[in-house]
Amino acid sequence: MFKIILARLRQGHHTMEYPDGPAPKLSDRFRGCPVVKADACCDGCADCAGVCPTGAIVIKDNHPCIDMGKCLFCSECANACGQQAIKYSDDYRLAARRREDLVVCNDKPAGPCDVEMERDIKKLFGRSLKLRQVSAGGCNACEADTNVLNTLAWDLGRFGIQFVASPRHADGLLITGPVTQNMHLALKKTYDALPQPKIVIAVGACAIAGGPYIDHEQVKNGADTVVPVDLYIPGCPPHPLTILDGLIRFLGQKEAN
């Protein structure tokens, strides 16, 4: 008992100040929201699109548009560009309500999307959101960094968000993975078992568009091919801070800036 108390004193207090204080410092090599500088693009160049492993880049009006929903944040495109027209910034705020809002083009204003839920839904879930997690394929990295939010430093419970053990107790689903053929039925059944109204959050490149497995016959290309999705959180996997930021701005518990 004595040793336990001593250890408690030694380990100290670690719950982060965020969101009231500053966000935790990320690695200087962290790859967040891509930024496209179209004036730097050379005529007819498509080097960035050529190296992208998932087809996340299309060239429009002679400059790249990056679909963060498909992006693995590997930065091959930035490395391939001789003009440094693509840069991965340290902005971790990547969540969006609409699929098309995940596309970063030159004409896009920088900064995070407004992701707050509708007022009537917010009245129900804004201060208490119970989620059921369904892992539907993928590599378990998104699951691992979602689980991290339950550790002491992140302490998801302080926002009223909790992962529950039954769909009957849940207000929404948090889905990871591309939805394999073998998880299709289980995902549908879980969704159907949730009481109305319900929300769905797709976390990670797989759940948004299939990730590295996009167009494999063994998978669907993401959660919204099976159930309607209300919030997309991109990344491969998204940083816990990206997930938390998406969740609490969705609930209206934090402003974008």
Binding site: V51, C74, C139, A141
Partner: peptide, 16 residues
């Protein structure tokens, strides 16, 4: 292919 390394990295995410 350009995807091969990403398949390897995501065979098991905790064993990347």
């Amino acid at each position: 292919t350009k995807r091969s390394i990403h398949y390897a990295e995501t065979l098991a995410g905790d064993t990347t």
